[in-house]
Design a protein around this nucleic acid. Structure first.
Lengths: 120, 120
DNA sequence: TTTATATATGAACACATACTCATATAATAG
DNA sequence: CTATTATATGAGTATGTGTTCATATATAAA
């Protein structure tokens, strides 16, 4: 018969590294907010919307025509982007014109473009 | 009886805007690469891994201990990050030490942090 | 060789999510 | 008021994804 295993089989090779990582770790709320922001940019429809709004303000039905999806789908995505403060809108009659809320999206996309275009 | 509807009910209010957006649109391959990169950063486990590696190189089992998930899960995520050229590793005996591949991750996280910390 | 350790990989599953459709709301025109 | 248009919202659904478990591989030691 073999020895009884330790109940916790989490191996930690470098204890100090793990401790240090815990100390400098982001708190859960910030981690979650960051993830939501990156996740928002990680969907083709939303990224195309944001890219389009980087050049000009557009309304829901134009974006729907551009992407080839329903206006409902666009509206759902824009609500998410609004919640994350990535886009803003202004009303003109019944039409809502959407635009980027600040420069962060452009900056993020710029760096990511650098990365994916980097020769391997 | 009502009139028969147009078979295509895609409304386009601003035809020029849509045309211009099509012209300046990213091609599909680049869009997809960008999305994969952002999606990689949009998961809490992967983001915590990247954040930890920003401060020091770490091995799989240490990362597993840090995150409280299995080494298998960490390994799966690291493979994804490797594929996207976000992390690299070096072998020392049986241990693989992972580190960030370049400065893009730090830059991306930095800007995203600015965004989520911005007062609303 | 055999054994142990660190990591990788494939399958299965539970949960998340992006879409469409139907319906509701908001603003304007008549 | 009613009708129309632009957008928003809720439900349902098909697809995607992050995890664990079991197993395979790789390096080192005995």
């Amino acid at each position: 018969m073999k020895e009884v295993k330790d109940t916790c089989d989490c191996r930690i090779i470098h204890d100090e590294k793990v401790k240090e990582a815990r100390l400098s770790a982001l708190d859960e709320k910030v981690t979650d907010d960051l993830c939501q922001t990156f996740k928002a940019l990680g969907d083709p429809s939303r990224l195309r919307i944001l890219w389009a709004l980087e050049h000009q303000e557009m309304c829901v039905c134009d974006l729907a025509a551009l992407l080839g999806i329903t206006e409902s789908a666009v509206s759902h995505q824009l609500r998410l982007l609004r919640t994350l403060r990535l886009v803003r809108n202004r009303r003109e009659g019944t039409i809502l014109y959407y635009r980027l809320a600040d420069d962060h999206v452009s900056a993020l996309v710029g760096i990511a473009l650098e990365h994916v275009r980097e020769p391997r």
